[in-house]
Computed example of a mutant assay.
Amino acid sequence: MSCSRRNFIAGAGAVIVTTGVAGTATVSTKSLAYEMEDGKKRYGMVFDETACIGCTACTDACREVNDVPEGVSRLEITRSDPKGEYPNTDYQFNRTSCQHCDNAPCVYVCPTGAAYTDAATGIVDVDNDKCVGCGYCLAACPYQVRFFNPETKSADKCNFCRDTNLAQGKLPACVEKCPTKALTFGDLNDPDSDINKVLNNKTVYRDKVDLGTKPKLYKVPHDKGEI
Score class of each variant (00 low, 15 high):
S4M: 11
A22Y: 12
T29V: 00
Y34P: 00
E35K: 13
M36F: 07
M36D: 08
D38E: 06
K40L: 03
K41T: 02
K41V: 01
R42L: 12
R42Y: 03
G44A: 05
F47A: 05
F47K: 04
T50N: 03
A51M: 10
C55E: 07
T56W: 02
R63H: 11
G71V: 10
S73F: 00
L75Q: 08
K83S: 00
K83V: 14
Y86E: 15
N88G: 03
N88Q: 08
T89I: 15
Y91K: 07
F93E: 03
N94A: 12
R95N: 11
R95M: 10
C98I: 14
Q99F: 10
H100S: 04
C101L: 08
D102H: 08
P105M: 12
V107M: 09
Y108A: 12
A115I: 12
Y116Q: 08
A119K: 02
A120V: 00
V124P: 04
D127H: 10
C131I: 04
C131D: 03
C131W: 02
V132Q: 11
V132C: 07
G135S: 13
G135W: 01
C137T: 09
A140R: 07
A140Q: 06
C141E: 15
Y143N: 13
Q144H: 15
P150R: 08
F160M: 15
F160D: 13
F160P: 08
N165V: 02
A167M: 09
K170E: 13
A173K: 00
V175F: 05
K177F: 06
K177Q: 06
T180W: 13
L188A: 11
D192S: 08
K197N: 03
K197S: 01
L199G: 02
L199A: 02
N201K: 09
R206Y: 00
K208D: 02
L211P: 02
T213N: 12
V220S: 04
P221A: 09
H222P: 03
G225A: 14
